[in-house]
């Protein structure tokens, strides 16, 4: 199992998520019932595609896409 931390930027929303080895960021989001269409993902400070695999202790920061104009 791999454990990652997920945060939504500028909010208090924060989770610790456990996923299978080899899981991708989209699997992590799915566990949290978040749609990858609606977030830009940065992993350990770097913008990545949501099909990227996650590693132990990764810090994932989500930038919501759905804020207005």
């Amino acid at each position: 199992m791999v454990r990652v931390k997920v945060k939504i930027i500028d909010t208090d929303q924060e989770w610790l998520v456990e996923v299978e080895n080899g899981a991708r960021i989209r699997d992590v989001l799915e566990k949290l019932d978040l749609n990858p269409e609606e977030y830009i993902v940065s992993r350990n400070g770097e913008v990545v595609a949501e099909d990227e695999e996650v590693g132990e202790d990764d810090l994932i920061i989500l930038y919501p896409v759905v804020s207005g104009g």
Binding site: D10, T11, G68
Partner: peptide
């Protein structure tokens, strides 16, 4: 949104 993030334009997230 990605263009904004990559160009350091992404504002503090507040929803109307």
């Amino acid at each position: 949104a990605l263009y904004a993030v990559l160009n350091n334009l992404y504002p503090r997230f507040v929803e109307c």
